[in-house]
């Protein structure tokens, strides 16, 4: 290096980097550290931070109940006379059998003591609650399109306990809407229930779903009234 070069370098406002020569491998290393850290954050830490967990008031065994009723899921999750869907059972329905303790489980005790005897509705946390902007009719899907519950809700009917309810801290919606997988990928039809997932099925049956003249598929207002 000539003295002229040195002078020029020093006159630059940025001091020369000490490892300007031969720093290559480290730079690459830091690059990969950056990649690795962000992958860990993005795939591991982020979902943990994004979702908050809440426990249901007490546990519930769907499998057990399903074995005892005659009319499958609709025994408790039924359609009202006007065709609207009842959703989670109200206390009055449960009381038909649970007026007295049924069995010795701790959850049964909580249910009877905290809710049945006080006449208080159970504040169930609903995994599949869609946003307010979505108009969803169970009747159109179950009675009209003859779909079964599993297509959207999975095998919850044979589950022995309730999973922990998780909700998005930013949006407040249940985690089941986006799906368990933070990547948004799914392997079963019930894994997530965002708009694209509804649209996938509506598009597949476009012969019957053609309310939009332009797209020959369902128009926005079918769900967004």
């Amino acid at each position: 290096m000539s003295s002229n070069d040195t002078l020029q370098a020093h006159s630059d406002s940025h001091p020369p980097s000490p490892d300007s020569k031969g720093g290559g491998p480290y730079i690459l290393l830091f690059f990969f550290i950056g990649v690795a850290l962000s992958l860990v954050v993005g795939w591991g830490v982020f979902p943990k931070l994004l979702y908050s967990q809440k426990n249901q008031p007490f546990d519930f065994n769907h499998k057990n109940h399903l074995e005892m009723v005659d009319n499958g899921c609709q025994s408790c999750h039924f359609f009202r006379a006007d065709g609207s869907f009842s959703g989670s059972p109200r206390l009055a329905q449960c009381v038909e059998c649970h007026e007295e303790m049924q069995g010795q489980s701790e959850d049964e005790a909580i249910f009877v003591e905290e809710y049945v005897s006080k006449g208080q509705e159970v504040p169930w946390l609903v995994y599949a609650r869609q946003p307010d902007c979505v108009f969803f009719s169970h009747s159109a899907h179950v009675n009209g399109a003859k779909m079964d519950c599993i297509t959207c809700h999975g095998h919850i009917g044979t589950s022995e306990s309730l999973k922990t309810y998780e909700f998005n801290r930013i949006t407040g919606y249940s985690r089941d809407i986006w799906g368990r997988s933070i990547s948004g990928l799914k392997s079963n039809s019930w894994d997530r229930m965002k708009m694209d997932d509804c649209a996938e099925c509506h598009a597949k049956y476009d012969a019957v779903h053609d309310s939009s003249v332009q797209t020959k598929r369902d128009a926005c207002f079918v769900c967004h009234k």
């Binding site: 690059f31 950056g34 850290l37 962000s38 992958l39 993005g42 982020f46 948004g184």
Partner: peptide
């Protein structure tokens, strides 16, 4: 380099 790596990596996460 670390932050470029971070950016690239983040783009590969959801």
């Amino acid at each position: 380099s670390l932050s470029i790596g971070g950016t690239v990596g983040t783009a590969l996460t959801p």
